[in-house]
Amino acid sequence: MNKIMYLEFERCIGCRACLAACRECGDHEGTERNYVDYVDFMESRQTFPMMCMHCKDPACARVCPANAIQITEEGVVLSASEEKCIGCRNCTFGCPFGIPKFDFDQNKMYKCDMCYDRSKHDIAPMCASVCPSDAIRFIDYDEMQTLRRRRTQLNLVEGRKPSEQDKWQYVPEFFGVYTD
């Protein structure tokens, strides 16, 4: 897999098709693993989609006492393996981005696995497939780099220069699984 999940929050129209689509994916057992929220409905209708970054060194796996969170060879961070998960919820508090979900009934954590059955064949995950606004995209590494570059240039045109402290704010969210 050499594809990137690329998020552009501004494009989101808040339709939550990604949530509905997430439920459709194999192995998701009819539960959604991603999020769409309003930034602040009182102020504006800006919504944002949110999903797992699939960190290379995931904090969720590091705080798991049972060592239950596995990473596939492609780099996809899977849900806690059911046989090991002891249901402590450490991962939901350790994750810097607030991603893992917890099912109290079944006593296990579940999270985005980038629709592993699709993405391992380079087919876009369900959320990225259906997202009508392209807020969530599943694109090539090179395309991601082009998009980032364009965004940075756009900001420069508008007279805002990134400094060492905040340069990462000048690129939209990108994450996913790629080989260096």
């Binding site: 929220d37 981005f97 607030g98 991603i99």
Partner: peptide, 14 residues
């Protein structure tokens, strides 16, 4: 809370 952590990431980004 997880919801606020998600929002922080977005607000930072935007």
């Amino acid at each position: 809370c997880p919801a606020c952590r998600r929002k922080m990431r977005v607000m930072k980004q935007m």
